[in-house]
Design a protein around this nucleic acid. Structure first.
Length: 551
RNA sequence: GCCCCUAUAGCUCAGGGGAUAGAGUGUCGCCCUCCGGAGGCGAAAGCGCAGGUUCGAAUCCUGCUAGGGGCGCCA
């Protein structure tokens, strides 16, 4: 019996009590069933008496005293107590909790899947770093969080497309191209250009990769040649480093294509039809203040060039036309000022901000070494890239360290700590627990413990009750992480599962002590051991972290 | 000046209005005669400040303080 089962039972009993006149008619909301922190408060507890008593014209204790006996009569419930201000504490019958172990094992990879997002087509755009330099740590955070979120949303039935937006149009790319050209000519970096060893390397690669003598071309043609080839090289590097990080995008979208296809002009025309465009000072504006922005926005500058937002208008429209019900953008904190105008744009197109368009703002990552901030400078060549991070700690540890915190929190990544490759990183704690489940199973099998028997009532040690209760929560955790767009909940939960598993391992043997008889309890525990392995494996899978069989 | 995020144990961070606020790490003390000690058990140690809402606030609201980020016809 799971807490969700209990919630359904409680709702049913409440309806019956109302129908029979024991409770006055009242409208009740969601029934919350939680694991009490204190085990003396039973296996599960609900606060419905405190939530609904007022609506039913009763005091919480009175309400609880009516509900509790009715619940106690339900099959599988051992006892029900009313405590404190009106908590209803439920203790399950022996075996009612343990049966879940077998269900988990039999469900296997499908344990934890849900259908809350079934049929919803979602577009997740993340990373989208400019192709003008190596991937930085901030991009790595989004790669980790975005890909994990995609996996979690998929687990709840959503149809998810991972998308990367290449800003390969506009002034930054021009600066990038000029910088490459200058480097190839051994000239100093242009004013406001990009510097660094990587620029020289790319410039050299461009030269090596073309038969003709680019440097002999006229200025404009040479710059264009470096732009095209340089950007292509950067695309390749970004795709490779993302893939090596376990992140494979379904769509790499090129900003430039929006201009070449006329999509930008169409988007502006559409807004003009809707009456949200005006001209002033020789520029074309979006009247975004109509939709809550704090000022109107220029979309075509007075010199005729498109402002950055023009591409976003067309891009959003393009996503919607491709059938995405929900477009989720993941942006760094340095772009939070962009949220209002994006939401205004969404509303201007007639969509619903917050539904069709969601924007997640992630705080920046601080790199520190022994607690001291690491100063990063492209010029000084002290930029720490995503690849550096992976080289130091590996993909699993890097992804895990970046996904286990809320995106609302600034995260400190301490290089000195990670370089030690010690067990400071909790990912090892979780992975070790998984490896242990595998090795215990191997060992058990070799000693003749099989799965021919399952007697859930034997899973009655406190540490097995705790482990079972923790495992049962998994579907709720994944559903909650999907709904709230918070992958870190899965990581934190897995750490709790690992802890519960280690404590159980310490208390309850799956194999008999040497020379001992294999008993039903050992076979039953093998099921529980496997159930823990399933949850750890499934959960790590949602985070894009490997679940090794040995370490 | 305005906007966003943050403030919880020595440190890094969890904590969706509920009962005695958790984990990792660090410190101190234990457990190697048995399935992996990358583990377990115990101890010390905390909600920035002031109000408010509520039966109940780390959580919601207001103000203050402190830190990070952002407020272009830049991208």
């Amino acid at each position: 019996m799971t807490p969700d089962d209990l919630a359904i039972i409680i709702a049913r009993v409440l309806n019956e009590l109302v129908a029979s006149g024991r409770l006055a008619q009242f409208e009740f909301g969601e029934v919350v069933v939680e694991r009490p922190k204190n085990r003396e408060h039973g296996d599960w507890a609900t606060n419905v008496a405190m939530q609904f008593a007022g609506k039913a014209g009763l005091k919480p204790r009175e309400f609880a005293d009516i509900l509790a006996p009715a619940l106690e009569a339900v099959e599988g419930i051992e006892s029900v107590d009313v405590a404190g201000p009106g908590f209803i504490n439920i203790t399950l019958a022996a075996g009612a909790a343990g049966s879940i172990a077998k269900q988990i094992v039999e469900a296997g990879a499908s344990f934890g899947l849900g259908d809350a997002l079934k049929g919803i087509s979602m577009n997740l755009e993340f990373v989208s770093a400019n192709p003008t330099g190596p991937m930085h740590i901030g991009g790595a955070r989004w790669a980790s969080v975005g890909d994990s979120l995609a996996r979690i949303l998929q687990s709840q039935g959503a149809k998810v497309t991972r998308e990367y937006y290449f800003n390969d149009h506009g002034a930054q790319i021009d600066r990038f191209a000029r910088s490459l050209l200058a480097a190839a000519r051994k000239e100093p970096t242009p004013e406001d250009g990009y510097a660094g060893a990587y620029i020289e390397q790319i410039a050299q690669k461009v030269l090596d990769g073309t038969a003709e003598d680019i440097l002999a071309l006229p200025e404009a043609e040479a710059q264009e040649a470096f732009r095209a080839a340089g950007v292509e090289l950067m695309f390749g590097e970004i795709k490779t480093s993302m893939h090596d990080f376990g992140v494979d995008f379904d769509v790499f979208f090129h900003e430039n294509s929006l201009y070449e296809s006329g999509a930008v002009q169409k988007a502006i025309d559409r807004l003009r039809e809707l009456g949200h465009i005006f001209e002033d000072d020789g520029a074309t504006w979006l009247r975004s203040t109509t939709f809550g922005d704090d000022r109107d926005r220029v979309i075509l500058k007075s010199d005729g060039e498109a402002a950055y937002i023009a591409g976003d208008l067309a891009y959003y429209l393009d996503k919607r036309s491709r059938g995405f019900d929900r477009c989720i953008y993941m942006l760094g904190a340095d772009h939070h000022g962009y949220v209002n105008r994006m939401m205004a744009m969404c509303a201007a197109f007639g969509d619903t901000p917050g539904v069709n368009l969601e924007i997640m703002i992630g705080q920046l990552v601080n790199l520190v070494r022994n607690g001291e901030p690491v100063r990063m400078s492209k010029r000084a060549g002290t930029v720490v890239t995503m690849e550096d991070l992976v080289d130091i700690v590996g993909v699993d540890a890097a992804r895990y360290a970046l996904v286990r915190s809320s995106i609302n929190s600034m995260v400190d990544i301490d290089l000195a700590l990670l370089e030690k490759k010690t067990n400071d990183n909790p990912v090892f704690y979780v992975q070790y627990a998984h490896a242990r489940t595998k090795q215990v199973a191997v060992n058990a099998l070799s000693l003749g413990v099989d799965t021919s028997e399952f007697e859930p009532a034997l899973l009655n040690h406190p540490s097995e009750e705790e482990l079972l209760a923790k495992l049962i929560e998994y579907p709720r955790i994944t559903a909650g992480a999907a709904e709230l767009r918070e992958p870190h909940r899965v990581a934190r939960y897995l750490e709790e599962v690992a802890g519960a598993y280690h404590r159980w391992y310490d208390n309850c043997r799956v194999t008999p002590i040497s020379g001992g008889e294999v008993e039903t309890v050992h076979r039953t525990r093998l099921w529980l051991n496997s159930a823990a392995g399933v949850v750890l494996n499934n959960g790590l899978g949602l985070l894009g972290v490997s679940a090794p069989e040995r370490m």
